[in-house]
Each structure stands twice: as structure tokens, then as C-alpha cells.
């Protein structure tokens, strides 16, 4: 056999980008299960529908860019985008919402920038933000957790869900929609959170569903940390800054601001902390940089949730911090071996 000449090293750790993405997909399973369990088939259908679209669009784009299709499809990054968007959309959002979202995510936010690794913004969050601004009604019509409805666990069958998503929205769906806790929070009037839960039994009953879903995401995140897919810096920094800020305000004016636990366990906080803020492509590079990146997201989430126009804020916070990532990179270079202090800036 002819000898070959190649550069060192000659050993390589098994695995590639595709396996990293598959691990991430695996880590979303608890969250997906929890969503399906509490909110019906909708989320699962959204995820599958999104994945299908994502693969097709990715293949099309790669083909148009004259790149080897199978090579690029097997990095599974499109699937991750689709799953994340699927988890973020309301379970009964019409099919075209997902179609628009995935098109924007894959074609505009990712492939137009040069494909995986070159996109400055998280594709799923770009799509989510765009959908939220464009179709506020569809995007804010969340299904109520089944537990809140009090009449059993399977109100909408698979078929009904499918028709709700792909055909005209049925009135049955309307009956199942309700505001999310964050919406309620926004329009709660003069109540404190404590009072709200006490006042509304239904809500008190249903909040557990949100907690459970957040816990599922948290589990997935811990799994990824264990697998060393990412470092602890970004999620911990984000959660910590959010907690610190909300605690501060909650302690100052408990009747005005919700408690930190509420912030951590509702909305997309956990999903964002472990699956969005840790997106390596669009976050800061160094460990120090990831800390600042996470802190920034945490602060922005709190600020937008508290004083902003939209109920949830993870998408906007992440996008804004994506903008800052290169800047953060320049000023958070690590101190290299043998250097007294780190370099700053780009020179």
C-alpha cells in the first residue's frame, strides 16, 4: 500500500460535527416529550413538519450553492434549527407559520450567510423573532396545558391536531388556547404573582406544566454539559444574571415584579439558556466571552420581559447579544501561556 504523507496529528478523536448535533437533538428529547405530554400532539407535529421542511430547504440551498448535498446534510444542523423552532412555536400554529419560519431560518439566516458556521445570528431565533413580529396573533395563541382544562388528558386527538394545523383552525382549538403565564403576568393588573396564583385556581393548577417543561429542558442541558458539548459559562451566566436582577427587583417591590423562580421556570428561559445561548456559531468564543454573552442575555431577557412590548424576550435578547459577540470576542481573549496579561482588541 502506498505510503501517504499528511500533516500531524495522526490521531483523531472519534466523532464529527454531525455527532455533536445528534447529541444536541438527543438532549431536546425530554423537552419535546414534556411539551407533547402537557400540550398535546401539536409540538411533535410542528417539530416533524419543521424537520421535513428544513431538510428539503437545506438540500435545495446546498444544491443551488453547488456543494455536495449529502456531506452538508449529515451535519444535522438544519434538524437542530427545525427542532428548536418547533419547540418554540405555539403547538397549534398553522402550517404556513412553520413554513415561513423555516424558510427564513434556513435560507436567509443560514445559507445566505455561507452555511453552517458562518451565520452571525441564530437561525431559529431569527425565524422566531420574524414570525413574532409578523404574525402576532398566531404566535401568541398558546394552547393551555391540558391539566388546566380539567376535563381529561386527551381533548384534541392526533387527527384533530393535524387538521387544526394543516386545515382551517377549528373552533376546538380556540377553546384550548389561552394566554401563557408571561401574558398573564403582563396583563395581571395590580396583583402580585402570589396573589395571582391564589386568585386563579386554574392558573395555579397549570403552572406546574410550565415548570415541568422547564425542568425537562434543564435536564437536557445538564446532559449536554456532561457530554462536554458546551461549557457551563453561557447558561450559568444567563440564569445567574436573570436571577440576580429579578431577585433584586422582587425584593424591592414584590407587588410589581414577579419572583425569580417565576422568571426561571416560565417562557423559554431554560430552552434559551441551554439550547440557544450555547449555540457555538453565534455566541462568543472564549470562556470569558461566553460569561459576558450569557450575562447580557440574562439582563436583556429581564429588561424586555419587564418593560418591553412582547411577552417573552429570549429571542430578542439572544439576537441582540449575537450582534455583540464579535465585540465581546475582541475584548475577552484569554491570557495565553507565558503572557503577563491578555491581548485586547484587534490591533
Amino acid at each position: 500500500m502506498a505510503l501517504i504523507r499528511i500533516t500531524s496529528p495522526h490521531a483523531h478523536r472519534p466523532g464529527n460535527t454531525g455527532s455533536v448535533m445528534l447529541t444536541v437533538l438527543m438532549a431536546t428529547l425530554p423537552g419535546l416529550a414534556a411539551m407533547t405530554f402537557f400540550f398535546g400532539w401539536g409540538t411533535l407535529i410542528q417539530v416533524l413538519w419543521g424537520s421535513l421542511l428544513a431538510i428539503a430547504l437545506e438540500a435545495l440551498s446546498v444544491k443551488l450553492r453547488r456543494r455536495p448535498v449529502s456531506f452538508y446534510l449529515t451535519d444535522y444542523s438544519a434538524l437542530v434549527t427545525a427542532v428548536l423552532l418547533g419547540l418554540a412555536l405555539p403547538p397549534f400554529a398553522p402550517w404556513w407559520v412553520m413554513a415561513v419560519g423555516i424558510s427564513v431560518a434556513i435560507i436567509i439566516a443560514k445559507q445566505l450567510y455561507g452555511g453552517m458556521g458562518s451565520n452571525p445570528f441564530n437561525p431559529a431565533m431569527v425565524a422566531y423573532a420574524l414570525l413574532l413580529v409578523s404574525f402576532p396573533i398566531q404566535m401568541t395563541s398558546w394552547t393551555a396545558p391540558f391539566v388546566m382544562l380539567g376535563d381529561g388528558w386527551s381533548v384534541l386527538s392526533l387527527g384533530e391536531t393535524l387538521s387544526a394545523i394543516f386545515a382551517t383552525p377549528s373552533t376546538a382549538v380556540d377553546a384550548h388556547t389561552m394566554a401563557t403565564p408571561l401574558d398573564i403576568m403582563r396583563h395581571r393588573g395590580g396583583f402580585t404573582t402570589e396573589e395571582m396564583w391564589v386568585n386563579d385556581a386554574l392558573l395555579a393548577n397549570g403552572i406546574g406544566a410550565w415548570h415541568a417543561v422547564s425542568a425537562a429542558y434543564f435536564m437536557g442541558g445538564v446532559f449536554l454539559l456532561y457530554k462536554k458539548i458546551f461549557t457551563w459559562h453561557a447558561p450559568v451566566a444567563m440564569l445567574t444574571s436573570l436571577t440576580v436582577l429579578s431577585t433584586l427587583f422582587f425584593l424591592l417591590m414584590p407587588d410589581q415584579y414577579p419572583d425569580p423562580f417565576f422568571h426561571l421556570t416560565t417562557g423559554a428561559t431554560m430552552l434559551g439558556a441551554f439550547f440557544i445561548a450555547t449555540d457555538p456559531v453565534t455566541s462568543a468564543t472564549s470562556n470569558k466571552g461566553k460569561l459576558w454573552f450569557g450575562i447580557g442575555i440574562g439582563i436583556l431577557v429581564f429588561v424586555i420581559r419587564t418593560w418591553g412590548n412582547y411577552p417573552d424576550a429570549v429571542a430578542f435578547a439572544v439576537l441582540l447579544m449575537n450582534l455583540c459577540a464579535p465585540f465581546i470576542d475582541q475584548y475577552t481573549q484569554p491570557r495565553s501561556y507565558g503572557h503577563a496579561k491578555p491581548n485586547r482588541g484587534m490591533k
Binding site: R5, R66, F71
Partner: peptide, 15 residues
Amino acid sequence: ELIATDRQPSIALEV
């Protein structure tokens, strides 16, 4: 270079 070497990935890194 991947276009040409998609089917024979081993060539890509040869010095």
C-alpha cells in the same frame, strides 16, 4: 475542494 473529493474524502488533506 470538497466538490471534487466528496466521494473520496481521503485526498482532501494530503500535503
